[in-house]
Each structure stands twice: as C-alpha cells, then as structure tokens.
C-alpha cells in the first residue's frame, strides 16, 4: 500500500524498517539476540583498544573517531592505524585498508536481498555491512529473520563500535604509556583471531599467508614500514601450488 515516495515523511522509520513492515526483535530465532549482544560486547572491547592504541601511537583523537564513523571496518582501521603510527605513510595505509576491505564487496553481493527494498535502506544498510553482520545474516535461513538479524546486529554494532572507540581514545590519552598494559600485543592478537577461521578452513590461504608472513618479517628490517606488508602479497604465488595442480606442468590445462 505504501508508496515509495512517502518514505520521506518518516526517515527514521526507513532507516530501521526498510520495506513494508517493521523489523521486530521477535523475527529473530531464540538465542540469536544473545549471540548478537555478545558480539557487540566483544567488539566494544576491541573498539576501546583500537581507540587507545591509535592515540597512544601518537595520532590525534579525531583520527580514530572519524575513521570509525566513516570507514567502520575493524581490521582495515587497525591496519591503517598500524601503518600510520609506524611511519608507513598515508598512501600505504589507505592502500592496505582498501585491499582488506575489498572483501566487503563480496559480502555486500551476498547480503543485497536482505537490506530491504527502498533506496534509503540500501544506502544506509550498505554502510552497516561488516564481517559480523554478514555472519549473522548468513546464519539465518528465512527472509524476515535475515533482515532482522541484519538491522539489529548492524545498528547495535555501529553504536557499540563508535562509542567504544571514542571511549578508548579518551582513555588512551589518560593512560599514557599503553605498552605498560600490553596493548601493543592486543592489536596482532585481534588480527590473529580475525584470520584464524579463514586459515582453518582454507589450505591455499594457509600456504599463501605463511609465505607472505615470512617475506614480510624478513623484509621488515630492510624496507620502510608499510612496504613489507604489501610485499607479502607475493605469498599469493604459493597459494597456486596446491594439491590440485597436476604433477606434470601442462600450461594449457593448468587453469
């Protein structure tokens, strides 16, 4: 019944309830909301450490805060801040972050049906696509539950992330030397926790990552910060040497 043009009357509603019906908590299967809330909490802890690490590394407060609002992608933010504070330069920081975030394009294609129909829902929803929201949506089988999972986890995560990053950034200035609290170990540990599922599942990724890590660590004393990490992409060549490859090299049939 509702004409798409009338969505202008209630912008709030379009943000929370794309399409003809409202997203309801009851659309979620039992237990899912608890799982979602746990992820909000976990990401809030990560957000606090992100804010604190960024400020402790010497960046002004607005950098982690603005980045969290506009980029809103944990691993890319960590890598960008890691490169910026290590002196890797803004170009390497942006390039690495973009390469890391290119995977959200794949998630966004997978989730395209679940944001809602209106353009407002799609434009706002797009910004909320993250690894976590994608995981929650893909775990539901039915349309209503998928859309509810997307908007509930997405909006909550956006709020949790940004509030916690601001908190961490404010605390980081007060904490002083965060190395004393071991926060410099938190950043690699976060990345490790993020990649572990992919490494577990994919042998090609394991080989490529191992080769890439060796290249990057070996190059670290020799090259300016930022370069070793990009150089690690050479490790992708190792991914091709999988068990699927025929023993005798036959260029015509290899690919």
């Amino acid at each position: 019944m509702r004409s798409p043009h009338r969505t202008n009357d209630s912008p709030d509603r379009t943000a929370h309830a794309p399409g003809p019906s409202l997203v309801r908590l009851s659309d979620l299967p039992p237990g899912v909301l608890r799982d979602i809330a746990l992820v909000w909490l976990a990401d809030a802890v990560v957000g606090v450490s992100f804010g604190a690490i960024a400020v402790a590394g010497g960046l002004p407060l607005w950098v982690p805060v603005l980045m969290s609002l506009l980029v809103y992608a944990g691993s890319a933010q960590f890598s960008a801040v890691g490169l910026l504070t290590a002196g890797g330069g803004p170009v390497a920081a942006a390039a690495t972050g973009l390469l890391l975030n290119s995977r959200t394009a794949a998630f966004s294609l997978a989730l395209a049906d679940d944001l809602g129909r209106s353009w407002a829902a799609r434009l706002i929803g797009a910004h909320l696509i993250t690894d976590e929201t994608a995981a929650f949506v893909l775990a539901q089988d039915e349309g209503k539950a998928r859309r509810a999972a997307f908007w509930i986890s997405g909006i909550g995560l956006f709020l949790a992330w940004n509030v916690s990053v601001l908190t961490g950034a404010l605390a980081g200035t007060a904490l002083g030397d965060t190395d004393r609290f071991g926060l410099d170990a938190a950043f690699p540990a976060v990345l490790l926790a993020l990649v572990l599922p992919a490494l577990r599942a994919d042998g090609a990724a394991r080989r490529a990552s191992a080769a890439g890590a060796v290249i990057a660590v070996a190059a670290a004393p020799l090259l300016p910060a930022g370069m070793p990490v990009l150089l690690a992409l050479l490790g992708l060549l190792a991914a091709r040497r999988g068990p699927r490859r025929p023993r005798t090299t036959a260029p015509g049939s290899a690919s």
């Binding site: 890598s79 890391l100 290119s102 990057a216 660590v217 070793p228 992409l233």
Partner: peptide
Amino acid sequence: LTVGATVLLVALLATGALT
C-alpha cells in the same frame, strides 16, 4: 581477493608481533 585479504592480515600481525 579473499586469500589476498588473509595474506595481508597475517603479514600485518606477524610484523606487528615481532618488529
């Protein structure tokens, strides 16, 4: 793209942990 992202993250955490 997926494997590339993983490789970058692992390289980043390895250099971040050791250097």
